[in-house]
């Protein structure tokens, strides 16, 4: 087993190798890498993998880690079912 096979995103099974390859191809933002490789879109919504990917981007590109970590957060955090949304509405 090589370093490239290390799993970075456990939710979507994305390896370090894939991430490195994308960065080398010029995808140097979390948003792009997320859209191409789906990492960060799993059940944990990137809590686990995002910092690791950001570190990899910083290591390869020399970009400032804070710039890299800036990303959009969108609700609803933790998720909610349609039924639960409707139930809240029924109370009105």
């Amino acid at each position: 087993m090589r370093e490239d096979d290390i799993i970075i995103c456990r939710c979507e099974d994305v390896t370090l190798g894939t991430i490195r390859e994308l960065i080398r191809q010029g995808y140097t933002t979390l948003e792009e890498i997320k859209r191409i490789a789906r990492c960060g879109m799993g059940p944990c919504q990137g809590k686990t993998c995002t910092p690791l990917i950001a570190r990899e981007i910083a290591a390869i590109t020399g970009k400032d880690i804070h710039e890299i970590m800036k990303q959009n957060h969108r609700p609803p955090f933790g998720g909610i079912t349609f039924e639960e949304i409707v139930s809240g509405r029924d109370e009105e």
């Binding site: 609700p75 609803p76 955090f77 639960e84 949304i85 139930s87 509405r89 109370e91």
Partner: peptide
């Protein structure tokens, strides 16, 4: 807590309801 919206509303999942 699910999110905070531009109209100052905070939503939360509580008791199977938003």
């Amino acid at each position: 807590a699910l999110g905070y919206y531009e109209d100052g509303i905070l939503t939360a999942l509580h008791d199977e309801k938003m």
